[in-house]
């Protein structure tokens, strides 16, 4: 599974504080620890509090680059911030994210082609989040059509079926799992699939248990990537074990250690 580490996000108090005081050490520390924990990408989000989000993004990327060469998932809804992040990341990046709305696709797909990077696309249309899997698959198809139009290959697209908190929308995870299955059949090569995992457990008591159970179920449905808290060791153990059971990794008695030796 492609592990996208979620922790460098201005929504978290420590990151927000580091951005405001221009203190690089907490950012470097998060980059190092996430890389050691097995992250394949580091998500970078300046959050809502930054005075100048373009400058904040440039500073975050430069600070991460002092300690890590991992590709970065530039996480913003603002076009100028996205471009600044992609430029600063020097090509090793992905776009997080577009939606299926035309005005976004028209801007972000050309950007994905220009930088030659993968792009996460949420199955959200002008009408919002479709209620079920069929509606999401329809949005995903529109996204794929827009990608092809701009010369972006389907396997550079990561379809995000928008997982919502189970505490509020209990039928939602089932629709997301079904969307993951359907997405793999939309084209050949198939687009990849991704979820922003931690959202599923918002406002729940057993957050970590819900997260890791949901992740293993999604992997069973064919999930390729997830934005996760990779510093959660039990989550990573569950993910590695699911990968093993899906025959994505060769078994050995110490398969956890073997996986970690290969990643990070």
């Amino acid at each position: 599974m492609i592990v996208i580490g979620e922790r460098i996000n201005g929504m978290f108090v420590d990151v927000r504080g580091a951005i405001q005081s221009q203190d690089p050490e907490p950012i470097r520390d998060l980059a190092r620890r996430q890389q050691a924990a097995g992250a394949d990408y580091l998500d970078v989000n300046v959050g809502p509090a930054a005075d100048d989000p373009v400058v904040a993004m440039q500073w975050l990327v430069a600070t991460i680059r002092e300690v890590s060469d991992l590709p970065l998932a530039i996480d913003t809804t603002r076009q100028a911030v996205m471009r600044a992040g992609l430029e600063a990341a020097g090509g090793k990046a992905m776009i997080n994210s577009t939606t299926g709305e035309k005005k976004k696709l028209d801007v972000l797909m050309p950007m994905a082609a220009e930088f030659g990077v993968p792009i996460i696309a949420l199955t959200i249309s002008e009408q919002g989040v479709p209620r079920d899997a069929n509606g999401r698959a329809e949005v995903a198809l529109n996204i794929l059509a827009a990608a092809l139009e701009h010369g972006v290959m389907p396997d550079s697209i990561l379809i995000d079926a928008v997982i919502l908190p189970v505490s509020a929308q209990q039928e939602n995870p089932g629709h997301v799992l079904e969307t993951i299955r359907q997405t793999k059949m939309l084209s050949d090569p198939a687009p990849k699939t991704v979820i922003g995992l931690s959202n599923v457990s918002q406002n729940a008591l057993y957050r970590e248990l819900i997260n890791r159970t949901c992740l293993t179920m999604a992997l069973g449905a064919g999930l390729d990537a997830a934005i996760v808290d990779c510093l959660d060791d039990e989550l990573m153990d569950a993910m590695i074990t699911a990968e093993l059971l899906l025959n994505h990794q060769v078994y050995s008695a110490d398969y956890l250690k073997a996986y970690r030796a290969s990643h990070g």
Binding site: V250, Y251, D254, K257
Partner: peptide
Amino acid sequence: DINIQKQVNILVS
């Protein structure tokens, strides 16, 4: 046995 091969490699590492 590929599983045992991997295990021996881990042990020697």
